[in-house]
Computed example of a mutant assay.
Amino acid sequence: MKNLFSMLSCAAMAAGGLSIAAPAAAQSTLETVKARGHLNCQVGPPRAGFYQLLESGDWEGSDVAVCRAMAAAIFGDPNKVEFQSVSASVRFTSLANGESDVLSRTATWTVGRDAALGIDFTAPVFHDGQGFLVRKDSGIKSAYDLTGATVCVITGHTSEATLQDFSRANNLDIQAVAFDDSAIVNETYLNGGCDAITTDKGVLASEARGFPDPSEHVVLPEILSKEPLTPAVRNGDNQWGDIVQWTVFALINAEELGITQANVEEIAANPPNPLVARFLGAEGELNTGLGLPKDWVVHAIKAVGNYGEIYEHYLGDGRPEALGIPRAGSANALWTEGGLMFSPPFR
């Protein structure tokens, strides 16, 4: 199915009022998605590594892969998904109002969002932290050198409040300049309208890829925050939340077990042990509560690979187009390698 590129209007969203309580639904989200024939997946404005719009009109990236895995799990076809590109200021409203089935983009899981916006977060797909991007020739070597600096930030991000907290705590008198659109943030910075950009470090690496000369810019070493970037769903449909969450866990568990895009079908046909047999649906009924086919995990892994494959392809150094963000020694490594990425048991 051809992907949909729809930039939703902020004004139109605002016209619906400030309340973002989820609408009443006569059927479950899974039933709605099946009846529609495709998944509506919300991403952000194009961003290399995470959700990038290609010249062909197709989307690719690590967050895109999560939705393709979901579509494969539900329909057996990773292409039965339409992508909605939504600005940061209205992303949660769009999800809570039912325009999107799932939010799969660089969105930080916080208590304020989880408890008050009519949405539920599921399982982190990337652990990041806020930082600063500056010009190499600026003489700025540390975030603590930003006294009196003007810093560009995106409206509606956790980065905005974290920047204020960092400035106040360290008496830096940083002047924030907020914009709704990351493209305007970048343009303002490149034209000298601000001394630095602040957001998650992974996002900074992605944005710098699009600059005329990425080598002229550097991300400062300090990490201001913890940013678990997590897919989200609407409140009130536990089964749908489980489907999104356990799709992420399936990608991670497959990496733990050494199951890849290339070998998943072969292993499913001849599971080496009962644990793998249950995971891949060769025995047991772990799919029943989710409302998915017995072999949903096989379809998901066959479509996009395991978590490690996705990471290296888009975020690591698996190819020249990837962001080159090291995984080893980071929170994004598997728990068996000192990181935070793990899956609860499939049993």
Rank of each mutant, 00 (worst) to 15 (best):
residue 87 S to K: 10
residue 91 R to D: 00
residue 114 D to L: 07
residue 108 T to P: 00
residue 105 R to S: 07
residue 112 G to M: 04
residue 117 L to A: 08
residue 74 I to Y: 00
residue 120 D to E: 15
residue 98 G to L: 09
residue 104 S to T: 10
residue 76 G to N: 12
residue 113 R to Y: 04
residue 106 T to C: 08
residue 102 V to P: 01
residue 110 T to N: 05
residue 74 I to V: 10
residue 103 L to A: 13
residue 119 I to T: 05
residue 80 K to P: 13
residue 94 S to K: 11
residue 89 S to G: 04
residue 95 L to N: 03
residue 88 A to F: 00
residue 89 S to Q: 10
residue 93 T to E: 09
residue 112 G to L: 07
residue 77 D to R: 05
residue 101 D to A: 02
residue 73 A to F: 08
residue 94 S to T: 15
residue 92 F to C: 01
residue 107 A to D: 06
residue 91 R to H: 04
residue 118 G to I: 11
residue 72 A to R: 06
residue 100 S to A: 15
residue 80 K to R: 15
residue 99 E to R: 15
residue 115 A to S: 13
residue 76 G to V: 03
residue 118 G to P: 09
residue 103 L to E: 01
residue 76 G to K: 03
residue 108 T to S: 07
residue 91 R to N: 03
residue 105 R to Q: 04
residue 112 G to D: 02
residue 98 G to W: 11
residue 95 L to K: 06
residue 90 V to M: 02
residue 107 A to N: 03
residue 116 A to N: 15
residue 74 I to M: 05
residue 72 A to L: 09
residue 79 N to H: 14
residue 99 E to G: 10
residue 112 G to K: 00
residue 85 S to M: 05
residue 73 A to Y: 07
residue 85 S to G: 10
residue 75 F to H: 04
residue 116 A to I: 07
residue 89 S to T: 15
residue 115 A to F: 09
residue 120 D to R: 15
residue 75 F to P: 05
residue 115 A to H: 06
residue 72 A to F: 02
residue 91 R to A: 00
residue 91 R to F: 01
residue 91 R to M: 06
residue 96 A to Q: 13
residue 96 A to N: 05
residue 89 S to Y: 09
residue 113 R to K: 13
residue 106 T to K: 03
residue 97 N to C: 03
residue 87 S to G: 09
residue 98 G to Q: 07
residue 91 R to T: 01
residue 103 L to Y: 01
residue 89 S to F: 06
residue 94 S to W: 10
residue 118 G to S: 09
residue 117 L to Y: 10
residue 112 G to T: 01
residue 91 R to Q: 02
residue 97 N to A: 06
residue 104 S to L: 02
residue 104 S to A: 11
residue 110 T to V: 11
residue 80 K to W: 11
residue 116 A to G: 09
residue 91 R to I: 00
residue 113 R to T: 12
residue 113 R to Q: 07
residue 87 S to V: 14
residue 117 L to W: 12
residue 83 F to P: 08
residue 118 G to N: 12
residue 80 K to A: 13
residue 88 A to P: 03
residue 99 E to H: 13
residue 119 I to N: 08
residue 84 Q to D: 14
residue 79 N to L: 14
residue 95 L to S: 08
residue 77 D to L: 06
residue 93 T to V: 08
residue 75 F to D: 05
residue 108 T to G: 02
residue 78 P to F: 05
residue 102 V to L: 01
residue 92 F to S: 00
residue 95 L to P: 06
residue 82 E to P: 14
residue 92 F to Q: 02
residue 90 V to W: 05
residue 91 R to K: 12
residue 92 F to A: 00
residue 116 A to M: 14
residue 108 T to N: 03
residue 81 V to E: 03
residue 87 S to W: 05
residue 82 E to G: 12
residue 115 A to M: 15
residue 115 A to D: 14
residue 108 T to R: 02
residue 113 R to G: 04
residue 87 S to M: 14
residue 99 E to P: 00
residue 113 R to D: 08
residue 83 F to C: 09
residue 110 T to F: 02
residue 100 S to P: 02
residue 95 L to W: 00
residue 96 A to Y: 11
residue 82 E to Q: 14
residue 98 G to T: 07
residue 119 I to R: 06
